[in-house]
Design a protein around this nucleic acid. Structure first.
Lengths: 167, 167
DNA sequence: TATTGTTATACTCTATAACTATA
DNA sequence: TATAGTTATAGAGTATAACAATA
């Protein structure tokens, strides 16, 4: 019993109610399909809610991670947010341009750039958290706290499995 | 108590273990962040696994929905897969070019194109399901059938809430 | 007037690889 | 030789609006 997900596919699909009168068929056995459509919609909502701010995708997440981990390197940030390091360069460029974060050369390892959020960045992050919180609540308001908690845990375990597989 | 997700945010974040030594901070209170990084990784895996087939994103999902719903219109397909109708045109163009699906004018409503999968499409879909199944198993093999089932249910409820909000 | 499908366009995102500087 | 960061570029994805045919 190396894996039990194959067994789960079969049992899950037949009990699963469809969104409307449209059937998911065999596709209903795959989590990736569901993840994609929910995430696409959520990111559209996010883009619409923050369009006035002109935010690049990944910028909000990156700034949040920097706030929670002062001195984090760009490589570590890339890994945590799930972006390529070249994308992270662009994001940090913008964060610096807006004055929301700064790069500082590490004294221990001069290859590394340590990242720090600024006071302006924190203030802006407060606004963003408020906006994004409202957007998410519109989608999540039917999930109970316990369900929300479990959802986050499952997603974290999935992401950890992704990371383990590729390094 | 119109919504309890705000309360859930606070309680979830503090109990949630982080992926590594990096903290998610306030970002850990948002599901969108977790959804995005898992989905990004999964879609990368999918692209890598199907690169030999040269598949446009959304093509696999669309063909699966067409198989499960013979005669579905492009609008309905767009809604179910979560893509814009203009994107669906491109996808159906490719499906027809490969000979995996066909358009047929509806006799009841001559604006509509009814979509049907071909035998070649079904055969190809079999291969794709096998490939994608293996890819997903690599990420999902630690989730129990019950957890997998619950995850799908939660995602479906979230997507239904998305759709309700915008029509 | 609204809906289905189509086309065109501009923009964003992503993957990739080459390059530097440090280790 | 390996890692952190950078740059450049091509390709894929997306949003948007305008349009024709039909309801």
């Amino acid at each position: 019993m190396k894996t039990h997900s194959t067994a789960a596919r079969g049992s899950a699909s037949r009990q699963m109610p469809d969104t409307g009168r449209v059937s998911l068929g065999r596709l209903g056995d795959f989590v990736g399909f569901r993840l994609r459509r929910v995430q696409n919609q959520l990111s559209r909502d996010f883009a619409a809610a923050t369009s006035a701010k002109g935010l690049r995708s990944g910028l909000f997440s990156s700034l949040g991670i920097i706030e929670a981990n002062p001195g984090i390197s760009q490589s570590e940030l890339s890994r945590e947010v799930g972006l390529d390091k070249s994308v992270t360069v662009t994001i940090v460029d913008e964060l610096e341009k807006f004055g929301w974060a700064v790069r500082e050369r590490s004294k221990e390892d001069r290859r590394r750039h340590e990242l720090f959020i600024t006071d302006e960045g924190k203030a802006h992050l407060d606004e963003l958290f408020t906006i994004v919180g409202k957007t998410e609540d519109a989608v999540l308001h039917q999930l109970s706290p316990a369900e929300l908690h479990l959802l986050s845990e499952l997603l974290d375990r999935m992401y950890a499995a992704c990371m383990r597989d590729e390094g």
